[in-house]
Write a protein that binds this DNA or RNA. Structure first.
Length: 458
DNA sequence: AAGGCTGTCAACCGCTGCGTT
DNA sequence: AAACGCAGCGGTTGACAGCCT
């Protein structure tokens, strides 16, 4: 849809109008925590306010935004000033709709980064994170409505080719994420895992598997509004598949148990150091009850399921989701957010061998695994012989399973920091050919809109 | 013509990381 | 080490305009 007015033509409300609006705003949205001081305006900026802010920034530069209000008399908080400047008044802003090239770039970047709008904006000169975010959200809606792939094949292919030039290392995770993205309407059902590994022409456009898969892939299934994931998945097969298709996963878990190494961040690192914290978001699973002390039951229940996945890639994806979910959710004694939903999981244990129906609520609502898991609690494998057997049955042919614990993409479990929050990267080395992405390239949210997936998931 | 729907945009909110005290 | 403040980020919401029926 084309807007009648360009950004620059957009009619700002006049001062009177804005004032009226802001008064309404203030009375309705006044924060009780607001500090004493002048009543700050909210709502649309007036041209006069813009002029004041612009003049101030041109004169003093971008420094302490909270000072702006004091110095200029603007009745806007520092945050509001900063936002206004960054998104509208900056001289280097490019106005107007995105060009086709920019759109393609956004799609490509999103396939690599996920919802890292600011980072994407840095790659799009003159564009703001807000613009990109709005564009993407609109795109998501559109794709959802039309059941079209979020990542068009040509874009993915392009990204694939470029990445092959950019990196000499074939990223296992990228391949894997590619696999997952095939589920995004782009999946080639003829592809096998072997092909996946061997096929250098496969699309690495959606790299950074660990974060992708673990934080978001579960939602791919769990958030499906029309079908319960568990209605379709043979969990035993899923777990088995995980051994075949995701040796590193099992190896990682193995490492956790055997060598004190694990993917404790829920992320893997390549040779570059991991920087910054990592929070894993997990699917929202809604059960009728729970056993607060036995998440492992869940894995057994899954393993007992008896349906089939139609294609290997979906199984692969599910396997990852499954394994990760188990990995996290079976950890007893999780603190924080995990405890609250724990009772819901009780039904799982009491409903063993029954098919689970998985809720479709958004991942943001009280997921059992929406938690920061304490590393000190990661002895879950010891408590679940079934899973222990599973993870130890990792294919010996897989590179990572042959790797020593030190080679595994795992962080030190002895750390007291939360499992999925990493302050200190400890993973630096991988089996050759299985390099995992740098966190900064990780698409933490790339699959955050899986509920917008085409019919293959619906 | 009117109302509903959709797309676009701007802005706010809460959270997090980081630097400073 | 803890508290605090600031900057930045991502999610969400509301307003508005255009399209469709």
């Amino acid at each position: 849809m084309t807007r009648a007015k360009s950004e620059s033509d957009r009619v700002m409300p006049g001062p009177d109008q804005a004032d009226l609006a802001s008064h309404d705003d203030d009375s309705a949205r006044e924060s009780p925590r607001r500090r004493a001081g002048p009543q700050l305006k909210k709502g649309p900026w007036t041209p006069a306010e813009d002029a004041i802010l612009e003049a101030y920034v041109k004169k003093h530069g971008v420094q302490n935004w909270n000072v702006v209000q004091k110095d200029t008399g603007l009745l806007r908080c520092g945050k509001s000033c900063r936002l206004r400047w960054a998104n509208h008044l900056r001289p280097d802003l490019k106005k107007g709709t995105f060009t086709k090239e920019e759109e393609n770039l956004i799609i490509k970047l999103h396939s690599k980064m996920g919802n890292k709008w600011a980072r994407m904006a840095a790659r799009l000169p003159g564009r703001t994170d807000n613009e990109i975010k709005n564009y993407w959200n609109t795109r998501i809606k559109k794709c959802q409505r039309t059941s079209t792939p979020i990542y068009p094949a040509e874009i993915c292919l392009q990204a694939s080719n470029e990445e092959q030039h950019e990196s000499a290392d074939f990223s296992f995770s990228e391949k894997l994420a590619n696999d997952l993205l095939h589920g995004n309407g782009l999946y080639d059902p003829s592809s096998t895992w072997g092909d996946f590994i061997d096929d250098q022409e496969a699309l690495p456009y959606a790299p950074q598997l660990p974060d992708v898969s673990f934080s978001n892939l579960p939602g791919l299934y769990f958030e499906s509004k029309n079908h319960g994931f568990m209605d379709q998945v043979n969990q035993a097969e899923v777990l088995k598949e995980s051994e075949i298709s995701f040796p590193w996963l099992n190896a990682a878990i193995n490492g956790t148990f055997d060598g004190g190494h694990a993917f404790s961040n829920g992320n893997f690192s390549n040779s570059r150091p991991m920087t910054g914290p990592w929070k894993m978001e997990l699917p929202s699973l809604q059960f009728a009850g729970s056993d607060p002390n036995n998440w492992s039951t869940y894995s057994r229940t899954w393993a007992a399921q008896g349906a089939n996945f139609a294609d290997p890639c979906m199984r692969s994806s599910a396997a990852m989701a499954s394994a990760k979910f188990e990995h996290m959710c079976m950890i007893p004694g999780n603190s924080g957010q995990l405890e609250e939903p724990l009772p819901e999981a009780h039904a799982v244990s009491s409903a063993e061998n029954q098919q689970l129906s998985v809720g479709s609520s958004s991942a943001s609502t009280g997921s059992p695994c929406d938690a920061m898991v304490e590393t000190s609690e990661l002895h879950f494998l010891e408590r679940d012989p079934n899973l222990y057997a599973l993870v130890n049955s990792c294919s010996p042919a897989s590179p990572l399973c042959q790797a020593s614990p030190d080679e595994l993409p795992c962080s030190d479990f002895s750390s007291a920091s939360p499992v999925f929050v990493s302050d200190e990267p400890t993973i630096t080395q991988y089996e050759k050919g299985f390099l995992l992405p740098h966190p900064e390239d990780s698409r933490a949210d790339a699959f955050s809109h899986w509920n917008a997936m085409p019919p293959i998931f619906q």
